[in-house]
Amino acid sequence: MDIDLILRVYPFFIEAAWVTIQLSVLTTILGLACGALGAAARMSRLAVFRWIGAAYVSVFRGTPALIQVFILYFGGPQIGIQLDSFAAGTIALGVNIGAYMTETIRGAIVSVDKGQTEASRTLGMSRWKTMRYVILPQAMRMMIRPLGVNINALIKGTALVAPISVVELTYTAQRFIGSTYKPFEMFLLAGLLYMVIIYVAGQGIAWLDRRARIT
């Protein structure tokens, strides 16, 4: 292993890791928003919304995220959407993971015992109040862990913006493999940084999960 080389190039990787972190955070926020909207649509009383929600999940989960990134970045300008690679990558990945999060959120809501709804409705609570005060607080707790799984996948998924030249960890590793011919060292350097990011995110999610379970 070429330690000298690693010491020389690691500042570039640290910088790239920072980009990966920004990508991850923004994608998570956008994904959660899309997921919440998607779940609401999927469970709507109106068939049109249910249909739109189902189509969103099916299309975005049924095609490669890489293609989605390409369509937005390369194809966007054709329909008047001109985005730089970072913005295009973030939006495409966020909307993509949102489709997965839709199912996670919906799954958690559906898993709340039906008796809870019946009890609330029997007390005279409206559909919305039942959801807001009884179902969601219970579902929230149950969705933290599976959302954590989505986020774990999403962090690794940010590598998909490397092909559109966002200078994040995988792109940086690829570039240095090309110039140094040391694939193993570059893999380890980028890989360890990914694992640190995933570890920290995992700890954060575990903390949230523990806190949610106290009450």
Partner: peptide, 9 residues
């Protein structure tokens, strides 16, 4: 713990 794309490289 690492992206597939990185592994492919």
């Amino acid at each position: 713990g690492t992206p597939l794309l990185l592994q492919l490289f």
